[in-house]
Write a protein that binds this DNA or RNA. Structure first.
Lengths: 135, 135
DNA sequence: CAAGTACTTTAGAATAATTCCAAAGATGAA
DNA sequence: TTCATCTTTGGAATTATTCTAAAGTACTTG
């Protein structure tokens, strides 16, 4: 073999999470290929297909833990729906309003000038740009 | 009197909405003073205080209709919570992550350069910038 | 490697936000 | 006024998410 298959257990461990059977299964689905956008529901459906039993509550737990550990970013674009993005690098989103699709685009070409200073007593956490489009 | 008090009924009518007792009451609360950010729940509480009976379902109906009519903008910043903004002009938001507070800032000073073209088959609807801050 | 402890998972109940529903009520055109 | 149409309403239904307590699993220590 040329490429070593990523060691998800180690990755979880170094994020401070025990590499349990279900967390590893979830990590494999999430981080096994390119960047992904998932909802708890969609991820649950995917992981169930791998024949490893994972409860929906566990998916929610894991997503929140992964996010807290910096393995995922949470993106809120539509009421009542949270997306989790495996791309934790600096980037922004296209959101297709018709069907709820989400696409990344890199932030490195984007310049935002003229932002006002944060309200007093607050410090900047991050700037999210959502470009809403319609079909 | 110098300034005529705004005619909410007329405003609703010209938005294509029947000026019912409850819609007028809601419009009065929403548009009576400066710009507002409300949730269905908070608006419901406010309008109840005016002694005009309005069901929560009606508040949801009205907010959606007002939004569809262009009288309000919907802002989604936190999972499971939608804010409606009476400021329909071009502007962006500060979102204080700790307490869910939302503040407007005008878009006229803000320049965003280097945005990629919308995905094929879509046209731009609008660009939302959310500056997330923490206390 | 046996044990114990702390952390996890689980199913289902609980909560929260929002929408749906069918019946009762209000509005505006004629 | 009359009536057809649009609205409101309370409560049930739905959807997304979190909570809970019991059962299971992982890591540490001896």
């Amino acid at each position: 073999m040329t490429g070593t298959s990523p060691d998800f257990a180690a990755r979880l461990r170094s994020a401070g999470l025990r590499p349990t059977r279900q967390r590893v299964a979830l990590a494999r689905v999430l981080f096994g290929a390119g960047h992904r956008h998932v909802t708890a529901e969609s991820l649950h459906a995917e992981v169930k297909a791998t024949r490893i039993p994972v409860a929906l509550a566990t998916v929610y737990n894991a997503l929140n833990q992964f996010r807290d550990a910096g393995l995922l970013h949470e993106v809120v674009v539509a009421p009542g729906r949270s997306y989790f993005d495996t791309n934790t690098g600096h980037h922004h989103h296209f959101f297709v309003e018709n069907d709820g699709e989400l696409h990344d685009f890199p932030a490195d070409k984007v310049t935002i000038a003229g932002l006002p200073a944060p309200p007093r007593g607050t410090r900047l956490s991050r700037v999210d740009v959502v470009v809403r489009v319609r079909r």
